[in-house]
């Protein structure tokens, strides 16, 4: 019965699902093409030149992906940059906004987690500000900052701050009193206690917050770049939609997914590094 391990069986199922999915997609598109009778199979495969508003088959997306990924960093003017450059812009904005948020959220979370007065004083603000869609800040940011680049970074900042802040506060407040007592009986100062006892104890919760934040930041950057335009993967998707180039749209959607997955798995590794069992 159990000739193959669970993982291997799961992998076989994944591949089978992928193949079936792609085949169904491919065939439904070719069936459409035959029905309309306008496009030959050859035209579909080469795909180039003609701006058509039809959904492309996967083979066409694969060809597009091959073209784009074999030269990802070309730069032929404001409306024609390689996918690598566009993603690079997006990652730069996400990381900048994200690390600025971490710089504030983690120390502030420590404060809130350690002092119930600070918690009670700041909690009303957090509760009101947190549910605001990050994009709602965009007009205000554009008006005050007067710079679309910085405004996009601000939007990332504001959306990634909350999960980190709340998880840090939660993690710090939940540190076992026995461990704090160990620090106290060893006469560790406030900073030493924070770094050698509270931080490692709360790290799994903090990193979980960081992981949620990076996920949200990556979701929001696409929308933010659609609004501010210029560069970035969000702008790229929108631009290709305006060009009615659905092949590029689908390709860039896939790229957004892949980059998001990579960002997430980096934090997954970090999470494993700071995990401990009691």
């Amino acid at each position: 019965m159990d000739l193959l391990s669970e993982n291997k069986r799961a992998a076989i199922w994944s591949i089978a699902l992928l193949i079936v999915g792609l085949l169904v997609w491919e065939m439904s598109i070719s069936a459409q093409a035959i029905n309309t009778g306008e496009l030959t199979e050859y035209e579909l495969l080469t795909g180039a030149g003609t701006a058509k508003a039809g959904v492309p088959p996967p083979s066409e997306v694969a060809v597009k992906a091959w073209q784009e990924l074999s030269n990802p960093f070309y730069d032929a003017g404001p409306n024609d940059k390689g996918i690598g450059i566009q993603i690079g812009y997006s990652i730069y904005r996400v990381l900048t906004g994200y690390f600025l948020a971490a710089l504030i959220a983690i120390p502030l979370g420590f404060l809130i987690g350690m002092s119930s007065v600070a918690y009670k004083a700041l909690n009303p603000f957090i509760q009101v500000l947190r549910p605001i869609s990050p994009l709602a800040w965009m007009p205000l940011a554009l008006f005050i900052i007067q710079d679309s680049e910085a405004s996009a970074i601000f939007v990332i900042f504001i959306c990634s701050i909350w999960p980190m802040l709340i998880n840090t506060a939660f993690g710090v407040a939940g540190v076992r009193e026995d461990w704090v007592n160990v620090a106290r009986t060893h006469e560790l100062g406030a900073f030493k206690t924070a770094f050698t006892v509270i931080l490692p104890a709360a790290a799994p919760t903090i990193v979980t917050g960081m992981r949620i934040s990076i996920g949200i930041a990556w979701l929001v950057i696409v929308a933010a770049e659609m609004l501010v335009g210029g560069t970035g993967i969000g702008y790229y998707v929108w631009n290709e939609w305006n060009n009615l180039d659905l092949t590029s749209v689908i390709f860039s959607i896939l790229m957004i997914g892949v980059v998001g997955m990579l960002l997430d798995s980096m934090f997954g590794l970090l999470q494993r590094a700071v995990a401990y069992t009691e």
Binding site: D178, N181, T185, P200
Partner: peptide
């Protein structure tokens, strides 16, 4: 509290993210 008075608690007094040796060197 002071280092002059050492404490062994009933439970949970070891820091779980450190090895046995590091708990002592700490």
């Amino acid at each position: 509290p002071s280092l002059d008075r050492g404490v062994v608690f009933q439970n949970y007094s070891l820091l779980p993210w450190l090895t046995a040796l590091k708990n002592v060197t700490f």
